[in-house]
Design a protein around this nucleic acid. Structure first.
Lengths: 160, 160
DNA sequence: TCGAAGTTCATGCGTTTGCATCTACCTTAA
DNA sequence: TTAAGGTAGATGCAAACGCATGAACTTCGA
């Protein structure tokens, strides 16, 4: 019996979710998050990937947080001297976010240790081909989501 | 230039994280979470997968929440009549958690709608082979982490 | 048998989050 | 030009979270 395409998609998504949860728990249990929580690290890492300053809403695309939560998280990081928050000269509403030297240093320190744990967990479980497949699949999944389809309410949205 | 195995692992993990965040945002934006938040649904879904009652700490393995947070989330669900919390007769410390009829109904209702969104998002982005690969890879990643090497009942085990 | 150690879940408390809303600014079109 | 509508980010507030710890129970070892 072949699974339907829809069933296959749901099984695959559940598998991704399970793996995500299991690995996140494993990483969170490592003793490297003293000075930076995982979420804070996530923000610093995202900033470190960009060369130029980025906007808050751009940062928000990669981080799984509401806009107000992210706004305040960045505020706290700025208060701690890890992130720089400047007004955007080209858009009076916006911010230009960037890492400070201390922020870059903190990211590198924690990131280095974290990368070791990630490598152990992933490389021990997968072959190189599987890692390449996962990278490719992840990119497709994230990419296909780029144009966010808003929750359109067609009148005839028959709901069960 | 070939990437090191460690680099490959980190790239794959980042890809998984990005896909996870993008899809979670997309799913969260759907107008189906009025009566059940995504986390609440996650708990009800996990319960629905088990036939018998399960323990709180077992539930905790699949859900990305601290033990106290899960304890109180289950409490709220029980107050709303969606989850049944009974003392475990075989272990005075434990609970036996299960869905009530209302809980099962709520899970099915929300789950049905959510599955449609998941199918759209995943099936549109991946081929069937990729979905199968993702399922397999996810299982491997979770599996390598899942069974905490518990000191089985072997009488005298050298413990570090 | 009995105390020490481990496990399971609950609770106190300070912190963080999400929702709704607000302000400030940009964009569009009449 | 200017008013209407849209977008970026901040803020008030209640809900939810994580950490540390506590209470009840089980398991282990002497």
């Amino acid at each position: 019996m072949t699974r339907s395409r829809s069933r296959l998609a749901n099984d695959a998504w559940e598998s991704l979710l399970t793996a995500h949860a299991a690995l996140m728990k494993r990483f969170a249990a490592q003793p490297i998050w003293d000075e930076l929580s995982m979420r804070e690290y996530d923000v610093l890492y995202t900033l470190s990937k960009h060369d130029g300053p980025i906007r808050l809403f751009e940062l928000g695309r990669g981080v799984l947080l509401s806009q107000p939560a992210l706004s305040r998280l960045v505020e706290r990081l700025a208060d701690r001297g890890l992130v720089e928050r400047l007004a955007d000269p080209e858009d009076g509403r916006g911010l230009r976010l960037g890492l400070t030297a201390a922020g870059r240093e903190a990211q590198r320190l924690v990131g280095g240790r974290h990368a070791v744990d990630v490598a152990r967990a992933v490389a021990d479980a997968l072959t190189e081909e599987e890692m390449r497949q996962l990278e490719s699949i992840g990119r497709k999944l994230a990419g296909a989501t780029a144009p966010a389809p808003k929750p359109q309410r067609t009148p005839k949205e028959a709901v069960l």
